[in-house]
Amino acid sequence: MEKGDGLMALSCPECESEVSPPEPVRQHEVLECPDCRAELEVIAVEPVVLALAPEIEEDWGE
């Protein structure tokens, strides 16, 4: 569940550079755009959709 296989390269929603998610990719996984270094969240896996990941909040951590 919540895993996608056989991925094609996608576009970074920030800079439109090519981003290749790992395989298999999971929903909520966070990737980094190799060009602009933006953090991207996998918000869907069938098909894979990337969005800018949320900014770190004050209470995030371990």
């Binding site: 569940m1 999971r26 929903q27 909520h28 966070v30 969240e41 996998v42």
Partner: peptide, 27 residues
């Protein structure tokens, strides 16, 4: 329960998959 899948969460979900444990991710 999660909202951000870090290396640790991936490893834990992979471990659950390996054991065929049924689970649901709640965002």
């Amino acid at each position: 329960l999660l909202s951000r899948l870090r290396v640790e969460e991936k490893a834990l979900l992979e471990e659950l998959d390996r054991r065929h444990v049924a689970y649901e991710v709640l965002d």
